[in-house]
Design a binder for these strands. Sequence first.
DNA 1: TTCTATTAATCAAACGATTGATTAATTTTG
DNA 2: CAAAATTAATCAATCGTTTGATTAATAGAA
Lengths: 209, 209
Amino acid sequence: MEKEKTDKKDHILDVAERVFAEVGFDGASTRLISSEAGVNMAMLNYYFGSKEGLLLAIFARRTAVFKDLVKNIGTTENISCWDKVDRYIDAYTERVFNNNCFQKMLYQELAITRKGELTDKITEMMMGSVNEFKKIIQDGVNSGEFKTDTDVELLIATLYGSKNFILNTPHISSIMLGYEVHNQENLDNKLKPRLKAYLKKLLNLYLLK
Amino acid sequence: MEKEKTDKKDHILDVAERVFAEVGFDGASTRLISSEAGVNMAMLNYYFGSKEGLLLAIFARRTAVFKDLVKNIGTTENISCWDKVDRYIDAYTERVFNNNCFQKMLYQELAITRKGELTDKITEMMMGSVNEFKKIIQDGVNSGEFKTDTDVELLIATLYGSKNFILNTPHISSIMLGYEVHNQENLDNKLKPRLKAYLKKLLNLYLLK
DNA sequence: TTCTATTAATCAAACGATTGATTAATTTTG
DNA sequence: CAAAATTAATCAATCGTTTGATTAATAGAA
């Protein structure tokens, strides 16, 4: 029935997302993906048209969820700009830790100079999140709450990049931190609160007068 | 003659490094690499044995150079720990901006869970650089120059990650910054000094009491 | 209900194209 | 000349995709 079909498609998307994150888009053969998902190879084309269609479907699913999550922290009234930054860091950290396979896949695609439709879709999604944060910082600078010589763009690079380094170079960060970052329990219990606290302190020192 | 042979091999390594950075290892066919380099396809195997051998040769060439660059800022006498951090940021920024194709390729490989020899070689190279910086920070904490609650590992993630975000997601960062980050002139004249100044201020605020 | 049509889902097999690699022949070099 | 460098042609393997057939599920007509 209809529900089971959706479940199966969702299952394939889950598996493909993980495999793409692990070995990259070009490194992931349709045979590997289908065998990992426990489905016949032809089902990928049957459901998603092509390998690239599968990739697009993964992005479509996540972006649909993200639109709700990124929304209007910046427009909340009656709280300081720093509190907005604080909330943004919380929301952002939660989001990326709960979708770390997708995040890893996302930045692998961003690193590659490919053609067409997907790049635009990714860029649009990223810029939405970026501009939300940018607006918060800019408001804080304009209102005098934050330092005037704040480098907003590089601060964004720090926010996104610090997390990327941890999650997207697991070989290195696991050695650095002393525990396996692929382990979701370590991620949730150890790394997530640590990263939140670190980012808040770092940005607080950099932004506030 | 011997010199020309080395030149040709070096030329192939240059081109392959760029192509790997642009489309990833799996996305770069030997035919594409050889045509971009203007050599016959068989020359890749003739010189480097295999496609993976070519990748290894790229790493071997860069690591040989890096061993000289990473050396002993930490053991310099008679300067403060902060001055060491200052110098490290300078040296690090210079290094990554002058090898941004290699850097991009490096982190694409680090993101992928692959087998064997290369991963160990990459990890060793990275940890050498990481530990050098870690030692500087740790000395500063122990001597009382830096704050005691410094999160060294996440600070490393910030240092490396901020730069990675700028250089490895050119689509996004070019929009953010308002100019093309692939343009080496923009990189050297605009971004490099800006990133240096930003990182120094950020780390200064975070580290110093 | 029971029999028949229709549709969706699934499969093994095969397709043409491309992959990385190798061969054997040729050219260049010393 | 002999050795090294370079080439076009070719190799088996794997790639993403398509095929035709089969099963399972649903709907319609009696």
